[in-house]
Amino acid sequence: MILPIILVIVFVIVLIFARRNAPTRDCRWREDRTGDKGSLRKYHCVACGAEAYRSEGPPDRCLKGLDTPRL
């Protein structure tokens, strides 16, 4: 009787930890110092090709769909 309850609790804990980094799972951000702009560091994702400028480290989620508008 107690074993199924323990299994459900373990399953829920595993799901919580598996979804914790879901927004950045596919992105691998690399710092590109040649493209820095002042105090902003340039980051490039080698998985999706997105670029971002940040001052506090690499982005925490995928920015693939946030392209700059074309004029």
Rank of each mutant, 00 (worst) to 15 (best):
F11R: 04
L71W: 02
A18I: 05
P4N: 11
R33N: 10
D32Q: 08
T68Q: 05
C48L: 08
C45Y: 03
G35M: 13
I6F: 11
R30E: 15
P4A: 09
R30Q: 14
L63H: 11
A47T: 11
I6A: 14
P69G: 02
D26W: 09
K64E: 12
D36C: 04
D36L: 04
P58T: 03
L15P: 13
I6M: 09
R33H: 08
S39Q: 06
Y43C: 05
I13Y: 10
D26E: 14
P23C: 08
L66F: 05
A22H: 15
M1G: 15
V14C: 10
C48K: 02
E51V: 10
V14F: 15
P23I: 08
D67N: 07
K64I: 08
R25Q: 04
H44G: 06
A50T: 01
C48R: 07
A52V: 14
V8M: 13
C45R: 02
G38K: 02
V8Q: 11
M1Q: 10
E51I: 14
L3A: 07
I2T: 06
A50N: 11
L63Y: 12
V8C: 13
M1R: 10
R41K: 15
V14R: 09
P4G: 13
V8L: 15
T34S: 15
R30K: 09
L7W: 11
G49I: 14
E31V: 10
Y43R: 01
E56D: 10
R54V: 00
G35Q: 13
T68K: 07
V46S: 09
E51P: 00
F17Q: 14
E31A: 08
L63R: 04
P59D: 01
A52H: 06
A18C: 06
A18Q: 09
R33K: 14
F17V: 14
V14P: 01
R41A: 05
Y43N: 01
R61V: 02
I16M: 05
K64S: 12
S55Y: 00
R19I: 13
P58V: 04
T34L: 11
G57I: 01
A18E: 07
I16V: 15
R61T: 02
Y53F: 03
P58Y: 00
C48T: 07
E56V: 04
L66A: 15
S55E: 06
R28C: 02
R54Y: 00
P58L: 03
G65W: 12
C45Q: 02
S39W: 01
V10I: 15
L3H: 03
I16S: 08
T34N: 14
A18K: 04
L71S: 14
G38N: 06
E56F: 03
P69S: 07
L66S: 10
K64A: 15
E56I: 03
